[in-house]
Structure formats: structure tokens, C-alpha cells
């Protein structure tokens, strides 16, 4: 990849999680405008990588570069200002707050009121169901709707890079398809995405590029299509 097309780059990052080294030297690259997926089994370190990128789980060594900024020593609140929005595992909505308040929290760093209104409308364009629920406490929504609020909240920060952690978890097959469609739409609008998924098939079908994580290391990487046809990936992650 040429340097100026790279949005995010990690160099040999190591991360401890609960005192155990969960990430043992991972180097990734995300090209501008692309969808990159991290697949792997439970505990392979996928979520930990995302947490390192958004600053929730600081790295022990290595470097993380986002555009021209080295971000590995920044706090989460400063990283989001640079344009990385993280939809964490388990959605992590403010469940006692309304849907509207959740979306407004997503736009916490922004001051442009006019644009904000437009982006709010865009969120309702992606997720029309939410519009009827704006004054409802987020905790009272269904799992699918909560996922929509979580993605919507992240979009409200106007990210350049969206980190999605298991957006399909706990959703019905129909909803998974819908979420996949929306992820593609968001990407078409120019937002790059890192997608962490257990559902490796969906992830590889959506993504342009993929990394297979095994016990904290990159076991395999490549164009998503080629990974879909890779025998090891097929056996281990696509159910043969």
C-alpha cells in the first residue's frame, strides 16, 4: 500500500489485558475507504486490538499511527476527536438515557449545530425504526434496535474510521443481513471500517481485506475473497 492511502497503521503492538499479554505484536494497515475485518476465535484478541486503537486499553509497546498522528499514548476522548469512533462489544449504550440523548452523546465533541442536525437525519435514514423511539430509554429497546443506536451514536461523531465490535452478536439472521447492508452503505459514504466478527463469513463477504488473529498474533492476512477460499480459514472459521 502507498503511504498516503493508509488511514491507520499499527506497528508490532503488544497489549496486556488482565495482566496477561493478549496481543503479542500485531501489525495492521487500514487503507482509506476500506473495510478491514479481524476474524478469529474467542479470546484471540480481536476486541483487545480495537480497545487499543480507541485508547481504552493502552498498548505496552509498538506504535499506532492514524493519518499523521501517533495516537498510542492518547486518551480515548482525544482519539475520538481525531476521527476514530468505537462501537464496543456489548454496545455499551447509556441505557437509562433516551435514544436521542445517546445520539447526542455521540456528538459530544462537535460544535457545528447545523451539520449535527443533518447527521442525526442521516442516522434516521439508516435506521428509520429509531425515529419513533427517540424519547424512549435506550435500555428498553430490543437487541437489534440497541445495536442500531450504538452504530448511530458512533456515526454522530463524524468518524473517518469506525471500529465495530461484533455488530451481529445476538441478532436474528434477517437483522444480520440488514446490519451488513448498512455497514456497506456507511462505507460507501467514505467511512473506513474495522469490523471484528465471530461471524467470519459475513465479515469476509463485507470486507475488502482481512486479518486472522490466533492467540494474539496475526496468523494470516489477505484480500477478503482469497481468505474466503483459503482452506485453513474454511476449516477453522467457516464451518468447513
Amino acid at each position: 500500500m502507498e503511504e498516503n492511502k493508509i488511514l491507520l497503521k499499527t506497528k508490532d503492538i503488544r497489549v496486556r489485558y488482565n495482566k496477561v499479554e493478549a496481543i503479542k505484536g500485531v501489525s495492521l494497515e487500514v487503507a482509506k475507504g476500506s473495510i478491514v475485518t479481524l476474524i478469529g476465535s474467542n479470546g484471540a484478541g480481536k476486541s483487545t486490538v480495537l480497545k487499543a486503537l480507541s485508547g481504552l486499553n493502552p498498548i505496552v509497546s509498538g506504535e499506532i499511527w492514524f493519518l499523521n498522528h501517533r495516537i498510542d499514548s492518547l486518551l480515548p476522548q482525544d482519539i475520538v476527536k481525531l476521527g476514530i469512533s468505537h462501537v464496543p462489544e456489548g454496545k455499551r449504550l447509556f441505557s437509562r438515557m433516551t435514544v436521542l440523548e445517546n445520539l447526542k452523546m455521540g456528538a459530544y465533541i462537535r460544535k457545528d449545530k447545523e451539520e449535527l442536525k443533518k447527521d442525526m437525519d442521516e442516522v434516521f435514514h439508516y435506521f428509520p425504526k429509531l425515529k419513533a423511539r427517540i424519547n424512549q430509554a435506550a435500555g428498553t429497546l430490543s437487541g437489534g434496535e440497541q445495536q442500531m443506536v450504538a452504530i448511530g451514536r458512533a456515526l454522530m461523531a463524524e468518524p473517518k474510521l469506525l471500529l465495530l465490535d461484533e455488530p451481529s452478536l445476538g441478532l436474528s439472521p434477517l437483522l444480520v443481513l440488514e446490519v451488513a447492508k448498512i455497514i456497506r452503505e456507511i462505507n460507501k459514504k467514505g467511512v473506513s471500517i474495522i469490523l471484528v466478527e465471530q461471524n467470519a463469513k459475513m465479515a469476509l463477504q463485507l470486507a475488502h481485506f482481512g486479518y486472522v488473529l490466533e492467540t494474539g498474533k496475526v496468523a494470516l492476512d489477505g484480500i477478503a475473497d482469497s481468505l474466503l477460499n483459503n482452506t485453513h480459514v474454511r476449516d477453522a472459521y467457516l464451518g468447513g
Partner: peptide, 9 residues
């Protein structure tokens, strides 16, 4: 943590 992710200091 979720608040920090939204940019809250």
C-alpha cells in the same frame, strides 16, 4: 469507558 469513547473528558 463508553462516556470516554464519546469524547467526554
Amino acid at each position: 469507558e463508553a462516556a470516554a469513547l464519546q469524547g467526554v473528558n
